[in-house]
């Protein structure tokens, strides 16, 4: 109570700032995360390159998705989660007390494992982000641009007012990507975006990721090591909540420094 009152009367604080290293978009610094009393992330340090695709791989339960959700503060929606450490985005700490997580999520978009379009029409799905953020844009224009970027325009241009749930699974997932692109974020987080899709839809999304990195920084969590090797420039390997190894994808897959990484990549466990 008293703390809340103090916060209320506290003078407007300026956000902590640092100089970002060149070509880096996000820095994760000494990040720890607890689910209740279980420590799920242990001292994570990682530098994410701008306009590159970074893949996070590792066996189930190693904390890949948790780390990803830390990057746009989606973990705040889970009541039992406690986070310590810093995540820098363009020199600002997103875990700063004065940072509004709504602003963060506007800059760091997210695509989920299961396609989750809203039960509205296709164009309203796309326009929703602009609407809630008060971005004043031409609706038709933003819908067309996002759908084209997500390589979905040709398939749906004649039925923009149909319910998004009538699309197929792969189309729904691309719609979710288009929806995330509509508010022009800097970073796009993808949490196993292809795990619910068939191989053809997966191939389409992988091509799309390749195109997206021209404009956006993409961070993708995946279960599929071939996928990581195909789409990513950098790869992080996690195991039991720790970041074991991080480096260029070719190096991680061809010449891993850690034995644990090598065993996972060669399929001896996980």
């Amino acid at each position: 109570m008293i703390r809340k009152l103090k916060e209320l009367f506290k003078e407007e604080q300026s956000c902590q700032r640092i100089e970002m290293p060149i070509d880096k978009k996000m820095l994760v610094e000494d990040l720890d995360l607890w689910y209740g009393k279980t420590k799920a992330l242990k001292n994570i340090n990682i530098e994410l390159e701008e306009n590159k695709v970074t893949a996070i791989i590792g066996p189930s339960g190693c904390g890949k998705s948790t780390l990803l959700r830390c990057l746009n503060r989606m973990n705040d929606t889970i009541p039992s989660v406690r986070v310590e450490g810093k995540v820098w985005l363009d020199g600002y700490n997103i875990y700063d007390e004065v940072t509004d997580c709504v602003d963060i999520r506007r800059k760091v978009g997210m695509v989920f494992q299961k396609p989750n379009p809203f039960p509205f029409s296709i164009e309203n799905n796309i326009y929703y982000g602009c609407q809630v953020n008060g971005i004043d844009v031409d609706k038709g224009g933003v819908v067309e641009r996002s759908l084209k970027q997500a390589a979905l325009w040709d398939e749906v241009k004649d039925r923009l007012d149909e319910n998004a749930l009538s699309l197929s699974g792969g189309q729904q997932q691309r719609l979710c990507i288009a929806r995330a692109l509509a508010i022009e974020p800097d970073v796009i987080l993808m949490d196993e975006p292809c795990s619910a899709l068939d191989p053809i839809a997966t191939a389409k999304i992988e091509d799309l990721i390749d195109e997206l990195k021209e404009y956006y920084t993409v961070i993708i969590v995946t279960h599929n090591m071939q996928q990581a090797a195909r789409v990513s420039d950098y790869t992080a390997y996690m195991y039991l909540g720790e970041l074991i190894e991080f480096g260029e994808t070719t190096q991680i897959f061809e010449n891993p420094q850690e034995e644990n990484t090598e065993r996972y990549i060669t399929g001896r466990f996980g």
Binding site: R105, R106, G109, M110, N116, G129, V132, A180
Partner: peptide, 18 residues
């Protein structure tokens, strides 16, 4: 209403009330 939809909306920068 599935929790997915709430997550999707929050991830687009909507506030809880929106």
């Amino acid at each position: 209403v599935p929790g997915d939809l709430r997550d999707a909306s929050l991830a687009l920068g909507a506030t809880k009330w929106q």
